[in-house]
Design a protein around this nucleic acid. Structure first.
Lengths: 128, 128
DNA sequence: TCCTAAATAGTAATGATTACTATTTAATTA
DNA sequence: TAATTAAATAGTAATCATTACTATTTAGGA
């Protein structure tokens, strides 16, 4: 793995993000530092960084995946109204894992919750 | 909602499926009865049937969604090796829902688990 | 049978992502 | 320090599931 300024800036953008940015948003942020960076470079390096375990990918049901600087085990809740993504401390406990494994004969490797809901702002009509 | 033979056959195919077929597989099955059916018609009617609550959509992380005849609340476990999808009886219980709602300020509308694992066949080297 | 809006077939468009290729560059070696 | 080479990039084309569009067909009521 060779150093590249592009990958370095991409990592910085994700690590300094407060929300869960998607590839295009990351691309636009990095462009401020490296104006001629290619979108393909952003995608390639995001995947590399995920493979290295330096960031995580959040799979969205509309297919527009997002990226996450938080590495501790957690899941996400997504506002159906405004699309906001929030971290959630909720995991399958050991008993639940065993129960599913017994029920299905599968060996669980990982489990992510796609929780859908309405956020407080949208509930109060602030957004949509 | 007007009757159409196309929608009727599409529903039949999903209801008589044992696995969780995707749109292309459904299209190919229906083509045996209605050779000149359009793929767009299959997609449109699958979405209509989902909206009507007659079938369900299973969101896959590769973006190639599948369809499910089972309407009772359940989730899915997916084999990372062969792609097989199996139903799982596992839901958030009331306490977990409340806890997440308190933690996030979101009102949960629905929650689906994307559980990944290795199925028995693949574990025994039968598939991949 | 006639009429009209709903549904279809066939094709084009969309949009996120990946693949491809000539060029650039990190970093090793002489 | 300069030459070398494989890894990484920029820019563009391709992919692939899905949706949009439009002329044509059709269900079902008058």
């Amino acid at each position: 793995m060779r150093y590249s300024r592009q990958r370095d800036e991409i990592l910085n953008v994700v690590l300094s993000s407060c929300n869960h940015p998607d590839a295009k948003e990351i691309y636009n942020m990095v462009k401020k530092k490296i104006p001629n960076i290619s979108l393909g470079t952003v995608y390639r390096n995001l995947n590399t960084l995920v493979d290295e375990g330096k960031i995580r990918k959040v799979l969205m049901k509309d297919g527009n995946d997002r990226f996450d600087k938080t590495l501790t085990n957690h899941n996400h809740i997504i506002c159906e109204c405004c699309g906001k993504v929030r971290d959630v401390d909720l995991l399958l406990n050991g008993n639940e894992v065993k129960e599913v494994e017994n029920q299905t004969g599968f060996k669980i490797t990982d489990c992510n919750f796609n929780i859908n809901g309405i956020c407080n702002d949208c509930m109060k009509g602030r957004n949509c």
